[in-house]
Write a protein that binds this DNA or RNA. Structure first.
Lengths: 292, 292
DNA sequence: GTTCCGCATGAATCGATAG
DNA sequence: ACTATCGATTCATGCGGAA
């Protein structure tokens, strides 16, 4: 079976309209947080945030299959000494749209941003909100079982050669890859707390989103040949992981720099070109690509 | 200085009225969670939960000192496959009362309740919501410093003398250039993710509240001779810890069984008896005690 | 070839200073 | 007053060059 990778350049509130109803198995995304990354993205203000996001989530609800899942990575910032409430308000509004708020996973960031303040400690966690269209959805729990006990620590260390793998089992939730190496070992199901460090590799792009995060959810909520969507693609971590895991993928990105970078990354195997659907919006950049 | 332990039997919405304004330094409590079954202990239905709690939080706002802190341990239940929203609604309503929602700590329960469901994993975390009356509050961060991460052990043990005087002038954060800053540093400040196991083998009651939890917050937010309040005392974990840490404490409990148990626990040193303030509500049980 | 060490780099937050 | 910018603070991690 042929795998597809579709890339779109543009605002996802518009580009999502090109995607058919009920066609996506998993949405994993990390939208720009409020007032964050102003230098790269425009920076959505805290006041506008819910209103800005709701049209997106409405489209996402449309394109997701009834058996599919939406994972939203987000965290509220501090304003004048208080945690903002826009994430809670967003959840409440999304439920009115028809989303079910199924679960909240915690991403424990082991290497969180440093700093010291008189009234708070470092923020070491983010929300991974799970939304669904239906109470019944696909979940392949066996795909993310983790080894039990301390032996995993040594076991995982020895794999560092073959693949970039971290010693994640230390903290309990264990989260590495290479499940095949655990064959024959006792495994247990993980919990809703995920321990991972952010990737701060000084190579090209700094992906605040570690690869293991989309990988874990892709394993948990999809099978091969399913379709994964990231409407805020950024540097394409989710798309890259999905492709490697033999899932079809769709990425949307508003910034040409990121879009171009991801497109270049997949260039060697690219041979199919889609025409832009909205002609008056074409730019000097190719607006969308399908890679097979 | 003499330490005091005040115990009240009754509904905290009523008993709290006996406590003076601005007299408490720290409130740590774990109220009965919302439940579908009303018959259970303190059983409050999900629908009623916010309305039931708001009169309590209003009284707590009154008795707390402006420099004090309120730590609320809570987690929403799953109902018909969805996480309930009453905790979010409660936060929004408490802000309307005048509370500041300063921070949300995560309690990672390392040994969470076992079980398996087709649509979710085990729940391994709870919220520890921090509320304050004022942006300025007492926080004794040095009291809860933790051992430095393992990475430092290997990296710091073999630093030469020349390394220690390396300049870190350049620009930017200036950290990392001078690793020798960390020589002799054994502890760092913690984050807002707290890793604790639940206490499983309690004698009588399963106090899901491990002693370390109130202990950590008492260390962080109070000094000796300060006053700690738990309006849902239960089996008295918070009170016991506060007493051991030389803090004055106030405990309120609605169930005579629990109240009596805690009272018995402190009986050997009990010599002061307070008269009930509300006579028509007296029961066969002694309604309040002050222990010095 | 291993192990060791220098270094850059973070979805941060506060308070002071500047326009 | 009210907003925008800037410096100071802090610590875990991976990479790459050195021992």
């Amino acid at each position: 079976m042929e795998l597809k990778t579709d890339l779109y350049l543009g605002d996802c509130r518009i580009e999502l309209k090109r995607i058919p109803d009920n066609s996506v198995d998993l949405i994993v995304t990390s939208p720009p947080y409020a007032d964050q990354r102003k230098s790269t993205y425009g920076g959505v203000s805290v006041k506008e945030y819910v209103g800005w996001f709701l049209p997106v989530s409405k489209e996402l609800l449309r394109v997701l299959k009834p058996t599919g899942t939406f994972i939203l990575n987000i965290k509220e910032k501090v304003i004048e000494g208080e945690r903002s409430t826009y994430v809670m308000e967003l959840i409440l509004e999304m439920r009115k749209q028809g989303w079910l708020w199924t679960e909240e996973f915690i991403w424990h960031k082991k290497n969180c941003f440093p700093g010291k303040w008189s009234n708070r400690f470092r923020d070491a966690w983010e929300r991974l909100l799970q939304f669904n269209k239906d109470k019944k959805f696909n979940m392949y729990q066996d795909a993310v079982k983790v080894p039990i006990g301390d032996w995993a620590k040594d076991r995982l260390k020895n794999l560092s050669e073959t693949d970039k793998i971290r010693d994640n089992a230390k903290n309990g939730s264990g989260f590495g890859k290479n499940v095949s190496n655990w064959l024959g070992k006792a495994t247990v199901y993980p919990t809703n707390v995920i321990h991972l460090a952010t990737e701060c590799n000084n190579k090209n792009h700094s992906a605040a989103f570690p690869r293991e995060l989309p990988e874990w959810f892709i394993r948990l909520f999809t099978q091969e040949n399913d379709t994964v969507l990231d409407p805020f693609m950024g540097s394409g971590t989710t798309i890259e992981v999905a492709k490697r895991m033999k899932r079809n993928s769709i990425g949307i990105e508003i910034l040409p720099e990121y879009y171009d970078e991801v497109r270049r990354q997949f260039a060697p195997i690219e041979y199919y070109l889609m025409e832009p659907a909205i002609e008056y919006e074409t730019t000097e950049y190719q607006r969308s690509y399908a890679i097979r």
